[in-house]
Design a protein around this nucleic acid. Sequence first.
DNA 1: GCCCGCTTTTGGAGCGCTCCAACGAAGCGT
DNA 2: ACGCTTCGTTGGAGCGCTCCAAAAGCGGGC
Lengths: 337, 337
Amino acid sequence: MSSRPERAPTIYDVAQAAGVSKSLVSLVLRGSPSVSEARRTAVLEAMARLDYRPSQAASALAGATTRTIGVLIDDYRNLWFVELLRGLQEGLAEHGFRIAVADHTLNAHVEASPLDGFLSMRVDGLVIATEPSPAMRVPEGLPVVVAGHRQGVVPGADVVANDDRLGARRATEHLMDLGHRSIGHLTGGGGAARLRAEGFAEAMSAAGLAPRTVPGDGATTEEDGYVAAARLLDEAPGTTAVFAANDTMAMGALAAARERGLRVPQDLSVIGYDDSPIASTHLLELTTVDSRNARIGAVAAERLMARIGGPGDPPGRRLLSPELVVRGSAAPPRPGP
Amino acid sequence: MSSRPERAPTIYDVAQAAGVSKSLVSLVLRGSPSVSEARRTAVLEAMARLDYRPSQAASALAGATTRTIGVLIDDYRNLWFVELLRGLQEGLAEHGFRIAVADHTLNAHVEASPLDGFLSMRVDGLVIATEPSPAMRVPEGLPVVVAGHRQGVVPGADVVANDDRLGARRATEHLMDLGHRSIGHLTGGGGAARLRAEGFAEAMSAAGLAPRTVPGDGATTEEDGYVAAARLLDEAPGTTAVFAANDTMAMGALAAARERGLRVPQDLSVIGYDDSPIASTHLLELTTVDSRNARIGAVAAERLMARIGGPGDPPGRRLLSPELVVRGSAAPPRPGP
DNA sequence: GCCCGCTTTTGGAGCGCTCCAACGAAGCGT
DNA sequence: ACGCTTCGTTGGAGCGCTCCAAAAGCGGGC
């Protein structure tokens, strides 16, 4: 009977079981190439037999590195980070790095600074997937990538994002190509929304059209999209197309349109931004702009690895080209009366 | 000029700066009550001045506990875990515990077992918010709560979930109270879906109605809801109400209804399950069942804390009562022809 | 003025690993 | 046969904390 809780096995236990020294076990653990095949298998076999699991705490404390990258996301509900995480994960896995995720909104009241937890953990790098705030002070020398946002308040950080202005221009041009002239834009809070609004205005002005931009209640939720679209459609009833700052707001716009008896896309075209999971549903079939989040994650991983390997090049800014995803929510306007 | 990277300060540095011993600093760190006010402030002041951050690795290695609970979720896209996390977080914070989240689908190809990372971290407890699998072997004595799922494969684990069968019964009864007789159920894969289907069948049978249950493509996505609803509406055109296994499937059902020219709720009533963020949007206004996920998180926290304090009571199963949330997607059927 | 019991503070050992310098055993040339 | 290198392996020191037993301070009662 195993009465006492039985302390977890350590490398010493493994070493003894395999008939080697603890140092050899440590070498196997870290995948050193200079271990003979015979001993390696003996050690691995002993580990499996003892159900050994290395202590992350011990290796972090003893080693120079934790092989962990902290990822700060804004809110789990904003699903754009899912693809980012996937790209990041894949890019890091081949280097043996893992990811630790923290949610800004959940931890807001727990910690003084949102990054404290990561710094206590001694992460080897940081991905900030939120609008950076001045409170995010980072120790000098720690590699940091700001992902998806372009307001680089974090000094020394790389920035990887999609070109919001270009994406907005493409969406707007798509609507114009379809024949729309009365196009409204639903905007929200935050830097990305501002850039998208600028791209919209540029495209409209370039075509000699007056850009009409309407805010919601300051954020970028479905509610904001609903409110903004309601305002737009009531103020400018001749509007035939709407470009929303993101897919969630576009969803709100669909609700406002339906409420007014406007069919999408026959009476009103709607375009979103982000190509989030909701955009591809049967219910929305939303034409949108793919902000390339998986790619952003992959590039962020690349940057971090380069910077961890050596000082690397000076911090830079990398903008990826977004792509229009045509689905069913935008069509030519009906011939005017 | 700070040329060298400047090793992070340790308790020794803080101790020296505050003119006390390292042990006293450690006591302050752990909030010991037996430290004089004068020294405590001196230490805290020194910490702030040096920008000191405790090393999680060191305290985990030296101490008996990590004050960390691992939470395994299935997929970041299934948003039901957000509220769970919030409830859990709040319940744990008052005990000074933190959360580490891992995503099953992302890590699937990285680690042998999804729990390996947590065990390497030496978490003090585990919340499994996925359908438990036999591969999830857990060391004896580690407190585990299975949250939101009732197929308790994990030995010795507490189970905290909503009563899916009851919730399904309530949703079905609501439809019957509105006057519906031809009600179909859209089901999917997984244990929760099975229980919800059972609840539906019970309620229907109790009212002397034939329960018609239709699967999608085996999962519970929007696509599955769409496929299942399409089948149902084509096979049984007289159907006036649909109860979907979750909100996402309900969304697919809305799409299938619209495609057939059926208005919701005038021609077809639709009810979902989970009260996920999409249910409360203007576009859906979905009547649904609140599965009380924040409460589930809070109860899970309570259970873990009790079990970490002492062996506590034997593992149990706690079912919370779900609540119907009435919105706009269900109404009385039109008078029959 | 001294001893006792309490509270507050302290040094030392040790957690499980990594890193490093150094070791023995082959292999090689001369 | 000898030293020299190379490869595989080893013990020891130390990472930054926590925990423990014991020391120091501090009154109060006799």
